[in-house]
C-alpha cells in the first residue's frame, strides 16, 4: 500500500492504494466518482477516458499510483458553476446518446479533441478521432453532430 496525493476535479485528495490499483478503480470505488465507466477492460472502448494533467487517457490502463501528483478531471468536474460544459450541453441538445454508457468517455475525448485540433472540426476528423471510443447504440451519427456543435460552442465561450 502507498499513500498518494493528487488533485481530482480541483480538490486535493489523498488516498491509500495498492500498487496494482488502476486509476479507474480509485476514481469509482474509493472516490465514488462513478461517472467514469468501465466498458471493456481491454483498453479499447474509451468509456473510462479522463484527463490526466489536461490530456485524455484511459484510466483503466494506468495505475492509480502513476497519478501521484497529477491533476485529474473526470466527467463530474467539467460543469462550471452548475452550468453544463458546452460539450455536455451539445450532447443533450443533439441527442448524442441512447443508453448513455459511453457518453462520459465520449465527452472527455471530445474536449481533448478540441484542445488539440481546435474548434473547427469536420465530420471525417471527428469520426477518425473517435477511434478509441466505442458506442454500441447510436451508430455515432448524433455523437458526431454533438461534438461538432460542442466544439463551436467552446470556441464562442
Amino acid at each position: 500500500m502507498s499513500t498518494i496525493a493528487l488533485k481530482v476535479n480541483g480538490k486535493d485528495v489523498s488516498a491509500e492504494v495498492e500498487d496494482r490499483t488502476l486509476l479507474v478503480e480509485l476514481l469509482r470505488e474509493e472516490l465514488k466518482l462513478t461517472g467514469t465507466h468501465i466498458g471493456c477492460d481491454t483498453s479499447q472502448c474509451g468509456a473510462c477516458v479522463v484527463h490526466v494533467d489536461g490530456v485524455a487517457m484511459k484510466s483503466c490502463t494506468m495505475f492509480a499510483i502513476q497519478a501521484d501528483g497529477a491533476e485529474i478531471r473526470t466527467i463530474e468536474g467539467v460543469a462550471q458553476q452548475g452550468a453544463l460544459h458546452p460539450m455536455q450541453a451539445a450532447f443533450a441538445e443533439h441527442h448524442g446518446l441512447q443508453c448513455g454508457f459511453c457518453t462520459p468517455g465520449m465527452i472527455m475525448t471530445a474536449i481533448d479533441m478540441v484542445r488539440r485540433l481546435g474548434s473547427d472540426l469536420d465530420e471525417a476528423t471527428i469520426r477518425h478521432e473517435l477511434e478509441g471510443n466505442i458506442c454500441r447504440c447510436t451508430g455515432y451519427q448524433n455523437i458526431v453532430k454533438a461534438i461538432q456543435a460542442g466544439a463551436r460552442a467552446m470556441a464562442s465561450q
Partner: peptide, 9 residues
Amino acid sequence: IGDPAVRHR
C-alpha cells in the same frame, strides 16, 4: 498508432 488516448501514453 492506436487511438488518441493510447497515443498519449
